[in-house]
Design a protein around this nucleic acid. Structure first.
Lengths: 281, 281
DNA sequence: GTCAAGATGGAATATTAATTCTAAATCAGA
DNA sequence: TCTGATTTAGAATTAATATTCCATCTTGAC
């Protein structure tokens, strides 16, 4: 009876429980320590998963999860899990507010809805990239980049952003890259640097800037290898040695660039990897 | 057999399910309509509670919850609830940890897997953007952009890409914007253009380029309003008039820019909208 | 008013997951 | 090395929850 009076209650909320777990490592057996790590690292899984699933993820027996909860004076896992669940539900309140705002079309509905639409559009573009950029195409293009004396990246206006990104990342990976940015109206002069041992990457969405088309055709005439990233299967870009048709959804006339920059990054990395392998051999 | 082939699969994710529920009211009986209301209003309870608890909260029999799930072609409530649970977990505050976990499994084993990783990382970043860029913050920053005599956009190296994008889109929307690109090592000279009636946007991820920090602090000293887009809540960017903390997952040390460029676009559009409204009034 | 179809609630049943218990394994100290 | 204490895994048991089934109620058409 006396002993029972002295045993304190389990933590009443997540903050207290998290603190108690974090300061209890010296008191925990090996298995319980693994569980503590997991509970603090991924509390939402702790909130939602069964003891069997958690046990498998952590690498312990399900009964160890129960023992963990009892170590912290809960009657069982269910009582401890309720703390994690309450926390998970509380942390989702901003999400509920966002849902309500969407339903109501409330005060700042324009901005909230616009964010939602751009996020959804970006996600859709990224998912589509998995289809439009299959491995063989990436490998072929990356090989063209890796084999080049210099990679020249050509883009104007909105796709210029993707071009700076590709150039920057190629350079970081020791793939010689030059941004054909047309500074001071000098795109034509910049093109004189392009030779037949080079690769030119044109990034252009319909409607294409006239300078981009001209420069691309000049590159082909020079004998350089060419890669095109475009949204429509249109000449002259379909004449490239390697080309990608990318879907970038737009919202209210503004086109995002999620798929394009992700592809640019993937190509740069793969080209850099190939170059590194070639250097070793 | 023919009939069974025509019955479509249940919604695969929360967005699709939410849409289907919201557009199905005419097909629902009285009780199922009550449940639909509740599911859309309080999805986290739907994720976490038992059919008995939900039935009591809603004022229907537990079996009505089952019938609701079957109406939407799920085998039962448990299968439907799993959709709500996945969404709840995805929206929880531990989401940033998931982004970081994506980083850990480096070593691009193959191009196919690398593409998958970047797509997943991009999607994760975009979803996180919904939390890290709430409406109030976007509105405040957009107002600072719209009110500026000139918006100067400051970024170096990898975030330079996002800066070109923001500047381009602001300009398209008739918001006067100047890219502080440091061409020819002239960032310090470019900063002399910045005055107290301007707004400076710094886009910088840790570790920040020294020039970016210096230029940002100079902008503040000049009296310009400042906006920072950064990955860590660190001075000096937390001293900005408005700042965003963005999670961008990286793979093999290469950081994508999906959330950052999407935020840039959203800000540009909102600023352009505000300017257009101000011009009308 | 009648009747058929659909909706409904709740008891019975089935399924799933938590919990208990115990033999075996492991650890730590003498 | 031995012994006692502690930890552990997993089978058996229990508890909790989902699901099914069907009698009853409700609704709408004729």
């Amino acid at each position: 009876m006396e002993n029972e009076k002295e045993i304190s209650a389990p933590a009443a909320d997540f903050a207290a429980l998290r603190e108690e777990i974090a300061t209890s490592y010296n008191d925990l057996s090996n298995r319980l320590e693994l569980i503590a790590d997991f509970a603090l690292r991924d509390p939402s899984s702790f909130a939602l998963r069964t003891t069997a699933e958690l046990g498998e993820d952590i690498g312990v027996a399900p009964s160890a999860i129960i023992r963990f909860a009892k170590h912290f004076r809960f009657s069982g896992f269910s009582e401890m899990q309720a703390i994690f669940r309450a926390e998970l539900q509380a942390s989702s309140s901003s999400y509920q507010d966002r849902i309500k705002n969407l339903e109501k079309h409330g005060a700042a509905c324009g901005t909230s809805e616009m964010t939602e639409r751009f996020v959804d559009a970006g996600i859709a573009s990224l998912r589509e990239l998995q289809h439009s950029a299959p491995v063989e195409k990436i490998e072929k293009a990356a090989q063209l980049l890796a084999d080049a004396r210099i990679v020249h990246v050509l883009a104007q206006k909105r796709t210029f952003t993707a071009a700076t990104y590709l150039t920057y990342n190629l350079s970081r990976l020791d793939v010689p890259a030059n941004l054909l940015d047309g500074a001071g109206g000098t795109l034509e002069q910049q093109m004189t640097l392009v030779g037949p041992e080079d690769t030119v990457v044109a990034i252009s969405f319909n409607p294409s800037a006239e300078e981009t088309i001209t420069a691309f055709e000049r590159a082909r005439a020079t004998g350089a290898r060419t890669i095109a990233i475009t949204d429509l299967a249109r000449a002259p870009f379909t004449n490239a040695d390697s080309w990608f048709q990318i879907s970038e959804a737009s919202v209210d006339g503004f086109r995002s660039l999620n798929a394009t920059i992700s592809l640019a990054l993937i190509l740069a990395i793969r080209a850099g990897t190939i170059c590194a392998e070639n250097t070793q051999n």
